[in-house]
């Protein structure tokens, strides 16, 4: 039974199928962006580069425009696009640029083939970076609210003889006092993506408070490093796009989606002025990168 409210979607779908000049045998990918913000455009642009022959990519600039359009593979870019596609269809979905936690949540409620290219860096990689940048700072402070899963961080830190000083945010009003509590027992403050704690308004006081105590903040994007964080490890939209393209190609050949995976390519940024003000001697970017590479190879 087709309910009346699905008819417009069906018409749209038929229109799509007839309007496209798809050659038979082409592998069709539908790239669904969360919206047309520059961030997603950067992803899309990088994704479109060097596509293999026989792969045909359509783009939707807004997640809301997706309404069960048929394709061999749907790639959502961003959390909003992933939820939209998941809600509308059970076609194979590759969710790119999505935090691992969001993906786990999504997987619980959705049927159908699905995989992901995560946005966040795995804990072990972050711990290796902390170790490479400041091996002597062992007490890692983390302030978090509901959304965070930090048990993994604790065990990864223990492997490097570090201690996790974790504090759960009491509420919006207690941010200052909770932060002071964490800072008073820590050598480093590790920022975690959590808009209740870290946002454009709060970052000022967080950075100033930690700087006053001579404690570096470790961020999770280049913007954090520009703002005054000591360092950050992150993947750019371009790096995520290339990995996504590889996964799409693999799917087109094998018909099997790869396992959900953390970013393979990543960048590091170090604020040298902050480092020298804090009296920290830090190796070159290349040296730290090599050390990270080496420790990840050792693990394998």
């Amino acid at each position: 039974m087709i309910s009346a409210r699905r008819i417009p979607a069906l018409i749209l779908l038929l229109l799509c199928v007839f309007a496209s000049d798809v050659r038979a045998g082409d592998f069709r990918v539908l790239l669904v962006l969360s919206d047309n913000a520059p961030l997603y455009q950067r992803f899309a642009k990088a994704f479109m580069q060097d596509l293999p022959q026989g792969m045909r990519v359509d783009q939707l600039q807004h997640a809301e425009d997706f309404d069960s359009q048929k394709s061999d593979l749907i790639i959502s870019v961003g959390v909003r696009a992933a939820y939209r596609v998941a809600e509308k269809t059970s076609q194979p979905l590759l969710a790119a640029m999505i935090p691992s936690k969001s993906y786990e949540d999504l997987k619980e409620t959705r049927q159908g083939g699905m995989s992901a290219i995560y946005l966040d860096q795995p804990w072990n990689r972050q711990v290796e970076m902390l170790h490479a940048v400041m091996p002597n700072r062992k007490r890692i402070g983390v302030l978090y609210s509901e959304a965070q899963e930090i048990a993994g961080l604790r065990s990864e830190l223990a492997r490097r003889h570090g201690t996790l000083i974790a504090r759960h945010l009491g509420g919006k009003d207690t941010l200052s006092s909770d932060l002071e509590e964490v800072l008073s027992a820590s050598d480093v403050l590790l920022a975690v993506p959590d808009s209740e704690i870290y946002n454009a308004n709060s970052i000022r006081n967080i950075l100033l408070s930690s700087y006053r105590r001579g404690i570096p903040l470790v961020g999770f994007s280049e913007a954090y490093v520009r703002a005054g964080a000591l360092c950050a490890i992150f993947s750019t939209p371009e790096q995520l796009a290339l990995q996504t393209a590889d996964a799409a190609v693999s799917y087109s050949k094998t018909g099997r989606l790869p396992e959900a995976q953390y970013p393979e390519q990543y960048s590091i940024a170090i604020n040298r002025s902050v480092a020298s003000t804090l009296g920290m001697v830090i190796g070159t970017d290349e040296a730290i990168f090599l050390q990270l590479r080496k420790s990840s190879e050792d693990k394998r």
Binding site: S34, L39, G78, V79, R80, Y83, M97, I98, P99, K101, S102, D105, L119, D120, A147, P193, D194, S195, E196, Y198, N199, A200, I203, R204, L207, L208, Y211, F220, S221, A223, Y224, R226, A227, G228, F234, P237, N271, S273, V274, T277
Partner: peptide, 19 residues
Amino acid sequence: ASEEVNESDYYQELPVVLS
């Protein structure tokens, strides 16, 4: 999801604090 972590947390612009 609007309160949950998403890519805008990762890629947002921030003011330069430690100038």
